[in-house]
Amino acid sequence: MEFLLVVVVKIVIILAFISLGVAYLTYLERKVIGHMQVRLGPMRVGWHGLLQPIADGLKLVIKEDIIPTQSDKLMFILAPVICFLHAFLVYTFIPFDGPKGFWGYGGYISDVNVGLLFIVAIASVGVVGIILGGWASNSKYPLLGSLRSVAQLVSYEVAMGLAIMGPILLAGSLSMVDIVKAQEKMGVWFFVPQIVAFIIYFICGVAETNRAPFDLPEAESELVGGYHTEYSGFRFALYFLAEYANMITVSAIAATVFLGGWLMPFPSILGPYLSFIPGFVWFALKVFFFLFVYLWIRATFPRYRFDQLMAIGWKILLPLAIANLLVTSFIILYLKM
């Protein structure tokens, strides 16, 4: 009974925290990109525009819900829910803190021994939501956007999956908690021995979440809004939340697998002074760093052409990921012998 209560409380806390995080990620995006363009971003709603995401959310919720007459109604309604559900389901397996974290209750909802595999699998089910949404709208831009999106996601998932194989080999486990523990035991975070995999993972992560410079599926200048062109109001909000939740997911996986999750940097030097800081703060800082880099990249680089996108994915990242995997496994084999 107590176990159930703990899990429910954890789910509620994490769900609330992620929803709020997603809302404030949009605020962060507008602020960071605003400052990078030498302007201020939202300033009017609340102190320095801090209530802006709440106002935006409220606006989306009370907007009229439009379902196009020519659309496939059931699929049209179902698609954003699929997208949203799978974007949030992933957080079940992400360790926000160590097993002793969250004041002894364990800093994660569940630690599955195939955690990373599960996350990658669930994240790719989200693609179904995108293509269903694009198809069910029965309109040309959403269809084109969803086709592009799916082509992009499928081709980058391969390289991404191969890139995270490197750290998995080093850790010898698919469990997220074990991967972090392996980094603690090794004394160095996996982004040092797996720098190639780290870069590949990050580029693929940007492409996976349809962010600039790989934001072809929702290229405003070409496709209006991509797969969610026909969506408005609350259904659009679901897609929007899913997209930003995916950003946080990719950052969280990167922080866990490559940057040591809840671990403290330089524990031998900083350990005595900063040990009072709980692990989830370090984790949040790492995730924040990745999110900032996301926004930074968006403010800096123009969009790729579609053939360039495919060329990068299949001709550069995939061979590199395979080479990295081979080299890593040979080195591990050599060290074991």
Partner: peptide
Amino acid sequence: DLIKGLSVTFKSMVSHAVTEQ
């Protein structure tokens, strides 16, 4: 080149905004 571009945007981020409220 990419790092050069990123440094340009970072520099403009820490500079003062030129817009008028």
